[in-house]
């Protein structure tokens, strides 16, 4: 019996009369690579926004590693261990690659340094800066971005921007990584490489990953389990292969057979 990393209990939110997500019950075990799929507008990103505190749920609760995080502020949730990437890449474009990662290290206790120490350039400042820089380099090396560390994030090719987003999220030292359509806009080669990166992250960092994806090849290739959302509700869940062959799921995606 493996440990549960994320559990949601009837999680839901409505905007006025629109129930964007309701009764979402996810149970994700430690080390799982879990897929969240569904047609456009099914509420997948809404679930991510609920889990990261961007939206406050109107119903239900969620627990990370046994601790309830419902209603916590976004930065607190991040510090408790949920990090994410975005559907449309949201890097800090005018900052260098390494700065992007270093920003994400900001709130880890091991890099604590008061603004005063920085302002007056006390030894503590240089010590912390060096530690952060080293850690950021280490992460960039893992994601194959070390060479580009001093270029501006906006000048990276698309595939590398995606990787940098994952590296930045990993820098916050999460327990659970949420990837929102990591393969969006990628060609088949890039997608294949991305699949390797995701597997690598899971295996080497002992990470639990929840990802949203439309590319069924990717989902079928790396996710062990999936939940299908449709109109904000769970349509099916279970082992990937079974769920993808479920007639209800196929109907939801391509419509009823006439």
């Amino acid at each position: 019996m493996s440990e549960v990393m994320l559990r949601t209990e009837n999680l839901g939110i409505s905007f006025g009369g629109l129930k964007a997500a309701q009764d979402v019950n996810l149970t994700i075990n430690k080390g799982d690579l879990y897929g969240l799929i569904g047609p456009n507008g099914a509420g997948k990103t809404t679930v991510f926004n609920l889990l990261t505190g961007v939206y406050q749920p109107t119903t239900g609760k969620f627990f990370l590693d046994g601790e309830e995080l419902t209603g916590k502020k976004q930065e607190i949730i991040n510090r408790k261990g949920i990090a994410r990437t975005f559907q449309n890449i949201r890097l800090f474009n005018n900052m260098t690659v390494i700065s992007n990662v270093m920003v994400a290290l900001n709130n880890l206790p091991e890099y604590k340094c008061s603004p005063f120490a920085s302002m007056f350039r006390l030894p503590k400042h240089f010590e912390t800066e060096k530690k952060m820089r080293d850690r950021a380099k280490e992460l960039l090396d893992i994601f194959g971005l070390k060479e580009e560390r001093n270029t501006l994030a906006c000048n990276l090719p698309y595939g590398k921007q995606r990787k940098l987003e994952i590296a930045r999220a990993m820098a916050t030292n999460p327990k659970l990584l949420l990837l929102d359509e990591p393969a969006a806009g990628m060609n088949p080669n890039e997608t294949a490489e991305l699949m390797n990166t995701i597997r690598f992250v899971r295996d080497n960092f002992d990470m639990t990953i929840l990802l949203i994806e439309h590319d069924m090849k990717l989902v079928g290739g790396i996710c062990e389990k999936v939940t299908v959302l449709n109109f904000g509700q769970e349509l099916a869940k279970g082992n990937t292969a079974e769920v993808l062959n479920d007639p209800r799921v196929i109907t939801a995606y391509i419509g009823e057979d006439e």
Binding site: Q74, N78, F86, F92, V103, A104, N106, T172
Partner: peptide
Amino acid sequence: LAVSEDRGAAVLMG
């Protein structure tokens, strides 16, 4: 700098 570029992303990075 990060907050000035994208407050939403910055807050989600803790």
